[in-house]
Amino acid sequence: MPSTNPLLRVDDDRWFEADPRWWRAVCGSFDRVVRGVAAIDGPRTIRVSGLLGQLARRAGLQGPSAAEVRRLFPFLTPPRASAAAREIAALRVRNRVVLALVLGGHIDRLAAGIRSVSGIEFLHDAVRSRRPALFVEWHIGAVFGITATLHREGLDALVLRNLPVQTAAERTRALGEALDSLRRGRPVVTLLDAPGGSSTGEVVCLDRRIVFRRGPFMLARVTGAPMYPVTSRWERDGRRTVLFHPPLEAPAGVSAAAFEEALAARAAAWLDGYLRDAPEQIWPFTLYNFLAAPPAAAQGPLARR
């Protein structure tokens, strides 16, 4: 069965700008090769790519270091921080393969790598009842794998990541499409930490002051859609466990601004708990973004939007 979701745009995804130019060129070539190889044997390519990521880290070609991981997760023991750093390096390259499979239209091969899916009833209920529902993700785990889950379950949802959102006009159009979907009872899947667009006020996560994209919180407010966190977790064998989590509790009896502020704070608290439990699921650029963010203890109240 063909996927109900259009393919991702190639130019939406880039390697770190901070990487050396020659290493980015190598990674670009890797992407092109892997698109061909992954089409032949996706699961094996994912396993091998994980090893490649770990080797690249050991050779000093990519992060993160165990020290960087411990700066964000200071409660980790040095051995656990090292193990997490290795997994994060593996995740980075594995995600290239997942993206290659999505871009190449090999959704079936990607779906075959799903070990288990739990909480899918939240999505089934939303589709069956035609009530608005927002499924939210972050750049953690195998985020592109959610598309494969929708395909496997034969469920139709609007995945905002699949729409062009580079310019303000495109983002406005995408937001309008999401609003229309929710009103018609079609679930919407969206990232809370996508680049571009307008931001929420500051929230605290992993003892840092960060912001999320504001659009999903506005949509939750105006449509009454519950917000369900979704994660696609990498397992050590290169397979993925997809988890649809219970909805975040929606604030009641508050103003529009307070609603969004409170829901964003709850989303941040949820992400905080998830990452403390599974630090190896964080994407390298998410980790570096957190490290660059001001500490929660910085002077002054949290900035409001």
Binding site: A168, T172, A174, L175, G197, S198, G215, M218
Partner: peptide, 15 residues
């Protein structure tokens, strides 16, 4: 309403 004028972002415009 957009950039050169009031500079409304996507969320404000939809609102």
């Amino acid at each position: 309403l957009d950039g050169p004028g009031l500079g409304l972002d996507s969320v404000a415009r939809v609102e």
